[in-house]
């Protein structure tokens, strides 16, 4: 795969949920590109559409959710143009996902080994069982779990170990893209740190791309090279992670998130929250969805949805920036 072909290419993707009150847009006109060997962070509050986005990329949307517009390409191939068997073979071979609820992502009645072997042999039918078992042991070692645990059932492992097993399953076929949907949210910070450190080492070695989804702003900014900030189903800003060390020059929502991070080394610790609550997706505010909570909102924000504007290093969706250009 040439270096300049994006691993993941989202263009104008919208995802809606069918409800009794009509379709509700959970993801609205999202465009995003992930290049090879790149870690991109996707941050937003609960309900901003991050997980829905992840499931849409994997074509795992269930029940009443459906992609209502745009295209999703992985390695240049349209995920939604594939046949059922084609999709089964493509998924996990080229793109995989670590679930938010890794605690419940493992089948409780079969061993860890069987679940790893299933993953391998579903895609590599020529691989013998003993080969697959050897490979399973290697994978566990890779995520720092003693292979004696191969014969364990999920309930015999701690939460952190289960999450490592899920990561091992996700990287089993060495896919080009791994989506991590809040992979460590359910774990305590010490376990979280050790898993993320290991993950970075493995990523540096295998050079797969990662779309890292989290609500933890500082965690993502530390891991990723580029970040997309999601609000009410839209990406309101995309910027290099390095630019997020300064509060100035960002979307007011991003600014708010940055101010909410406690600076533990500062003389005086000040944390400022963002007033109000995330909007109801059924009844989005007219104009910019963020305007009711925005300290700098003015007339146009209440009337028109802002255009996507290119900044020096990324893009932003805010009227304030349009004005800057005019000035």
């Amino acid at each position: 795969m040439p270096e300049h072909t994006p691993v993941l290419e989202l263009s104008h993707v919208s995802v809606a949920y069918r409800t009794a009150a009509g379709p509700v847009q959970a993801v609205n006109d999202v465009s995003l590109v992930v290049m090879p060997n790149e870690i991109v962070g996707l941050v937003g509050e609960s309900g901003s559409g991050k997980s829905t986005m992840a499931y849409a990329i994997m074509r795992l949307l269930r029940g009443n959710a459906y992609v209502s517009g745009g295209s999703i390409r992985v390695l240049g191939r349209d995920v939604y143009a594939m046949g059922r068997q084609e999709l089964r073979k493509f998924r996990w071979r080229h793109m995989s996902m670590v679930f938010q609820s890794a605690m419940s992502a493992l089948n409780p009645v079969i061993t860890v080994e069987t679940q790893l072997v299933d993953t391998l042999r579903s895609h590599l039918p020529n691989m013998s069982v003993s080969e697959a078992k050897d490979r399973a042991a290697n994978l566990l070692e890779l995520v720092r779990i003693d292979p004696v645990n191969l014969k364990s059932y999920p309930h015999q492992l701690s939460g952190g170990m289960r999450q490592r097993v899920v990561i091992a399953i996700a990287i089993a076929l060495e896919p080009e893209l791994v989506i991590m949907d809040e992979p460590t949210t359910a774990l305590d910070v010490v376990v979280q740190r050790s898993i993320l450190d290991r993950l970075q080492e493995i990523q540096a070695d295998k050079r797969f791309s990662v779309l890292f989804i989290s609500h933890d702003f500082s965690l993502v900014s530390e891991l990723s090279s580029r970040m997309a900030i999601m609000y009410a189903g839209r990406i309101v800003e995309e910027a290099p992670a390095s630019s997020l060390s300064s509060i100035e020059g960002h979307h007011p929502y991003t600014e708010g998130l940055l101010r909410a991070i406690p600076k533990l080394t500062a003389d005086e610790i000040t944390i400022k929250g963002i007033k109000g609550h995330p909007p109801d997706l059924v009844d989005l505010p007219v104009g910019c969805a963020f305007h009711p909570r925005c300290p700098r909102a003015y007339e146009p924000c209440r009337l028109f949805r802002p255009e996507i504007l290119a900044t020096e290093s990324g893009r932003v969706e805010c009227h304030l920036f349009a004005e800057k250009e005019v000035l």
Binding site: W92, S104, L106, N107, H123, V166
Partner: peptide
């Protein structure tokens, strides 16, 4: 989740 996860990982 474990069924969705298994479907995702390509189990026939």
């Amino acid at each position: 989740d474990y069924v969705v996860f298994a479907e995702a990982k390509g189990v026939p």
